[in-house]
């Protein structure tokens, strides 16, 4: 039997570039594992970039993000786009397992490529896996690429914020807007969506967001010519999704017109390089801790022979060489 699962990376890349979904699916697995194949994949695909628009969607658990994404993606398909979705859900911290249910909420979306991703406990992994997966989709020609994350952990926020357009979803009545502010989502939002807008408190949530935006404008944002719109949607009734899609397009054009798009993408590359570096250093640090030289440095510092800053410098030198 032929199976793409045993093919080498170069063969997979070749197949994937013809939009063979099995090959794309397999490459995503390799990227997620962050092993040597992931590196190989990144090396081969980076040059194939097609400039897909990357949309991050985040918000509190239960905000209805998946349903919203499902509805939007269906409309994108109907409008002739070829979207892909990365739906990120937390792994169980105890067992490392996960139940990934976003496909249920996106049921009926048959044309888009949907990939469920578990956070797998280690934050650094996600910070590499997501850009890697986006690179695969971008190279194959999926556009836009939608990343959906729960906006709780810093890494999730960072990953989503590294998108071209970041949509923050809140729901009425639970202090979501305030929570979003605390989680640092307010600064990164290009578009706000108040979902489940039929519920009591929707207009309060909107007002809270307006107020916080007024404040942040007074303290000076980097891009004064753009004020994030606040849109009201109702996922169950399917209301307001075209407005979100329109707002994303408006934001995209704004990014292009003002030259911000290039800046954001540069920042994204920067973020990926930083993530890779910290992963490399973390890994070396782990290895170093099993090394006698680490033990010696700690021992001499404990004995008072050298001071901690000097010890750190010695460790840094070891890590760099």
């Amino acid at each position: 039997m032929t199976s793409v699962r045993n093919l080498p990376v170069d063969a997979l890349v070749e197949l994937a570039l013809t939009d063979d979904r099995r090959a794309v699916g397999r490459l995503l697995t390799l990227v997620e594992r962050n092993g040597p194949e992931a590196t190989e994949c990144a090396m081969m695909l980076h040059a194939h970039g097609t400039g897909s628009h990357v949309i991050g969607i985040t918000g509190a658990p239960g905000a209805g993000k998946s349903t919203l994404v499902g509805e939007m993606v269906q409309q994108m398909v109907d409008g002739g786009s070829h979207p892909a979705v990365l739906a990120v859900d937390p792994s169980s911290p105890l067992t490392g397992g996960a139940i990934l249910g976003d496909r249920v909420r996106m049921a009926g979306v048959t044309e888009a490529f949907i990939r469920s991703v578990a956070t797998r406990g280690h934050a650094g992994g996600l910070a590499l896996a997501i850009p890697g997966a986006v690179r695969v989709f971008d190279a194959v020609g999926y556009n836009p690429v939608v990343i959906e994350t729960v906006g709780v952990g810093q890494v999730e926020v960072d990953v989503t914020a590294a998108a071209d357009t970041t949509v923050v979803v809140v729901t009425p009545g639970m202090g979501d807007a305030v929570q979003a502010n605390k989680a640092g989502l307010l600064e990164v939002a290009d578009i706000f969506v108040v979902n489940k807008a039929d519920r009591p408190g929707a207009s309060d949530a909107r007002r809270d967001l307006e107020l916080m935006l007024d404040l942040s404008h007074m303290t000076g944002q980097e891009d004064a010519s753009y004020r994030p719109p606040i849109l009201m949607t109702n996922s169950l009734e399917g209301e307001g999704h075209s407005a979100v899609i329109d707002a994303i397009e408006t934001h995209r054009r704004h990014l292009v017109d003002t030259g911000q798009l290039a800046k954001r993408r540069r920042r994204r590359i920067e973020f990926e390089i930083e993530s890779r570096l910290s992963t490399v250093f973390e890994q070396r640090m782990i290895e170093l801790k099993t090394d006698q030289r680490w033990v010696d440095i700690v021992d001499t510092t404990t004995a008072g022979t050298i001071a901690p800053p000097a010890a750190s410098q010695q460790v840094a030198n070891l890590l760099l060489h």
């Binding site: 139940i99 249910g101 249920v104 909420r105 049921a107």
Partner: peptide, 11 residues
């Protein structure tokens, strides 16, 4: 007129 229903809640 009524549309269909899909259970969105996961286990």
């Amino acid at each position: 007129v009524f549309g269909t229903y899909v259970e969105k809640a996961i286990v």
